[in-house]
Design a binder for these strands. Structure first.
Lengths: 325, 325
DNA sequence: TTTTAGCGATAAATCGTTTTAGTTTCCAGT
DNA sequence: ACTGGAAACTAAAACGATTTATCGCTAAAA
């Protein structure tokens, strides 16, 4: 089964493999009308299906690209991936999505495996611990695009959001509404978006002439987050607003709020920095900072595609503005 | 760049390609201690990375499988896909996810492309129009597993939910609560889950001795759904409960409810048949029938893996029970 | 001393394409 | 009739691994 090869087709049609190959690559100028017909008939008769693996080996292109996502549980990642898939679908390029799970080792392994599989390029949501690896790829001229997180001092394509500025605007907005005690909930400050969002928070407070209370900056892994929030809310100066630095933090905060039976909108204002699906169905008055995930994915895909095509890229760094809703 | 091949390693180490190959495949018994060292050193020195494409060509295995999803916008699909990816990750098998977008032509093209790429197997959320294709694959002995939708009269592996029974229970539950006018909102009845869910609905009404009012069965594509619901709600006997047959219908219904400012829980009860992310954050009293998506994906992956390994499968059809929450 | 056995290593065929460098055919133009 | 050259087609060498059959060698068995 499934063993009919180009040689079989050639024999059946009474021509050489080369001609069949030409046919498959639609270079019809190189053959006469009747041979073309014969080949068509032979393919039909034998039910021949070309083997792309063999072709890839020769052509050194696989028509596959890889995405290495820092953590697939973020809705943002899936939106970006979807955009990338949609884009590459136009070119019959398949996409392999890998979830690094915020683990640099896993990330490295994936990068190596995908490259061993000869994917034509990589889109990476980078962790912060494989700089040398990124660098070697870039230096080598291997097509890569980085998304969501900054990779310092690397002359590579990247697509990110204006984390600091968006957060700044959001916090300013809260301050204008009269909030003075604003908590900032975030996972450990290991990657650039979190750091940049905190920068925006601090800058806003400073510009508004408010002092920065370190107690209000709740930095913890998800499992400990609720507990830390509990501590903060048991203290004297309860916050009147919380900024959740991403989707996962948001979920933890929401659980916390439900447990404590805090009334959103009345007692507490909440802002999240991330795209949350179905958020418009929630009745609670929550504000969101949403990234233009689809556009970012599309841009990343374009940048990768151009690299694969060997074009050189004029503008490598793209910063997309987020929007407060 | 990146052109260092096995031959280079062999030359560097002063051995033959064969030995290097043995080394790479960890068949150390076939070589002496010192040669092993030399090869290790040579690989290290040259920064050799094996080319899996070449290996795949010879071995006729690619360590890749494909998933063809009917429609990626369903959260259920992504959950199942995730489970499949998690499973295959254990075996270093990569997964390519393709979105057929409910279009049989697209589905067919994907199946052919993935097979041309020599993926080792396929997990398919089948549309209802490629029976011959499915059949030929199954007959050929090519590893396939069907998910979510039934493929009649095909002796192939499949993993589905008990659509009829779960719907029956949910509707019965509504009836027990006193509802008599229950609407059933659904997309066109083209695929088995929708048909089976409707069956459950009808059976429940019949068993409860209620008559089936065809006006309450709102069958329409998503764009027309709101409009049709509007018609129904303008009529004399407004329903007091709605059963949304899947996630997309649910979204349309929710929009409708919001626009009409209908109060969920008081004026109207709502049940959805699908996994909705973040549903626990909604305050509205909605019931859900959730599929054990992760388990289903895992089972599908297992079934596929066993087929790929050439084992024969004792039990091919799996029906997972859904749960009303 | 000869045979046997097994270890360590290798040459060469193979997988199914693409592509280069020809070769043959055929016909128009001189 | 001969030539030049396009048109039509082909043989064979890649591509980078795996795998089979085999070989030389040494040490143990006969």
């Amino acid at each position: 089964m499934e063993k009919v090869t180009m040689a079989d087709v050639a024999k059946e049609a009474g021509v050489s493999k080369s001609t069949v190959s030409q046919f498959l690559n639609k270079r019809y100028e190189y053959m006469g009308e009747k041979t073309r017909r014969k080949i068509e008939a032979a393919i039909e008769k034998l039910g021949y299906q070309p083997n792309y693996i063999a072709r890839s080996l020769k052509q050194k292109r696989t028509s596959m690209v890889g995405i290495i996502v820092a953590n697939i549980v973020h809705h943002f990642s899936t939106e970006v991936s979807r955009a990338i898939e949609d884009f590459f679908h136009m070119y019959d390029v398949h996409v392999i999505v890998c979830n690094a799970d915020d683990d640099p080792k896993k990330e490295k392994r994936y990068i190596e495996m995908l490259r061993a599989k000869q994917v034509d390029g990589l889109i990476i949501f980078p962790s912060e611990h494989n700089h040398e690896l990124y660098e070697s790829m870039v230096k080598e001229g291997y097509p890569v695009v980085f998304v969501d997180r900054k990779v310092e001092s690397l002359d590579a394509c990247s697509v990110i959001t204006d984390n600091t500025e968006s957060t700044y605007r959001a916090i300013m907005n809260l301050i204008e509404k009269g909030h003075r005690n604003i908590a900032f909930a975030v996972q450990p400050l290991t990657v650039s978006p979190r750091i940049d969002r905190l920068k925006g928070y601090k800058k806003a407070l400073k510009d508004a002439g408010l002092e920065i209370n370190p107690d209000y900056i709740v930095e913890a892994d998800i499992p400990e987050l609720k507990w830390k929030l509990g501590q903060l809310f048991s203290s004297a100066k309860k916050p009147t607003a919380i900024f959740a630095a991403n989707e996962r933090v948001f979920l933890a905060v929401m659980e916390f709020i439900k447990e404590r039976e805090i009334k959103l909108g009345k007692e507490m204002e909440l802002i999240v920095f991330d795209n949350i699906p179905f958020v418009h169905l929630l009745e609670a008055p929550i504000s969101y900072i949403i990234h233009p995930a689809y556009e970012m994915g599309k841009k990343a895909a374009e940048l990768l595609y151009e690299q694969i095509q060997g074009e050189d890229i004029a503008e490598k760094k793209f910063i997309f503005p987020s929007r407060l809703v």
